[in-house]
């Protein structure tokens, strides 16, 4: 029976899952994902979580709990940095150690991923993971190359405007064609951490709702790394956080795009970097005259409050567009 490796459907799953899935499969292991986020899963997470962490980490607890009896090992790298001279949020770094006290926890694969000094360190970390499963260095290396290739295709699909779910469906051959995009009244940019905006439970299916209310949605993941970086470089001082950089860079880019009618920033309650990026984006958006909405999500958030604000925001955008054409 192949080794079962569990991956929580949380945090940077939305960026790096395709790569790790292929990597583990190539090495002969089976990958088991936790279920989609639900209220029950969040409740379970809340009971075990440290009280001071943010909502995404709380739900990540739920995902880990969901995997407990189903797998032989849980993959949870200790993410320190994924870009040179930048950091990932410290809560990510501490996450493997936070969950360690959970009962019945299978062994963790908690290798350090720290590319702060040089990018090549990624290779070392990946190899280290591979050696836990396989002794064959050649296999490990070819699996690594294949995983990287898949990751590139995945990012390309995201750049085409697919959501992680849709992109995965294509990668896994579940659908042949990319879903047809119907024409919408206008486009808004949704800026937020991938694990907030793409998690349908946490975000209350915000992308789906916006689209049902007549707005096409673009996100930061749609932009190539290079674009994001060059726009983020306009800040007088570089942000420490990789994810914050993405959000800022994407927001600055969308501020200049004439086809974008508004920016919605989604923050998680208790997220330190978000409170800062949100404020920064708001100031630049106001200076540029771009409609801006800041939404904060937490476990108590009722749908009604979010809906009222989204609805009012879209009304405002519509009203402005109508005034602009002189109706």
């Amino acid at each position: 029976m192949p080794l079962k490796i569990g991956i929580p459907r949380a945090l940077l799953y939305y960026y790096y899952y395709p790569m790790w899935k292929v990597y583990f499969r190539e090495l002969g292991a089976e990958v088991v994902l936790s279920s989609f986020s639900t209220k029950g899963l969040l409740d379970k997470g809340l009971k075990c979580a440290v009280d001071e962490v943010c909502l995404p980490v709380k739900i990540a607890y739920g995902h880990v709990l969901d995997l407990l009896d189903k797998v032989d090992m849980i993959f949870m790298p200790r993410l320190v940095s994924v870009e040179k001279h930048e950091y990932i949020c410290p809560k990510f770094l501490g996450f493997p150690d936070m969950v360690r006290c959970l009962d019945k926890l299978p062994p963790l694969i908690d290798v350090n991923i720290n590319l702060y000094r040089k990018k090549w360190d990624a290779h070392n970390a990946v190899t280290k993971v591979g050696r836990l499963i396989s002794g064959n260095y050649i296999n490990i290396y070819t699996a690594y190359l294949r995983a990287r290739k898949i990751q590139k295709i995945y990012f390309r699909l995201l750049h085409l405007g697919l959501t992680p779910d849709d992109a995965l469906a294509i990668l896994e051959d579940r659908v042949k064609k990319r879903p047809a995009q119907e024409a919408k009244e206008f486009t808004v940019a949704l800026i937020g951490h991938p694990y907030n905006i793409y998690d349908r439970h946490i975000s209350m299916n915000m992308i789906g709702r916006l689209s049902r209310m007549g707005a096409a949605v673009v996100t930061a993941e749609r932009l190539p790394e290079k674009t994001v970086r060059s726009y983020a470089a306009r800040l007088p001082k570089k942000l420490f956080w990789t994810l914050g950089q993405r959000m800022i860079g994407a927001a600055f880019h969308y501020l200049e795009r004439p086809d974008i009618c508004g920016i919605v920033h989604v923050a998680a309650f208790g997220c330190g970097p978000d409170s800062m990026t949100g404020e920064l984006i708001e100031r630049y958006a106001r200076a540029a005259g771009m409609p801006f909405l800041n939404l904060t999500l937490d476990e108590h958030t009722g749908e009604a409050g979010i809906m009222t604000r989204l609805e009012a925001f879209l009304d405002m955008v519509r009203w402005r567009n109508m005034a602009a054409v002189g109706m």
Binding site: R286, P291, T308, R309, A312, F313, M316, W319, A323
Partner: peptide, 8 residues
């Protein structure tokens, strides 16, 4: 005459 910003 057009809403340009709001907060709740």
């Amino acid at each position: 005459g057009v809403v340009s910003d709001f907060a709740m």
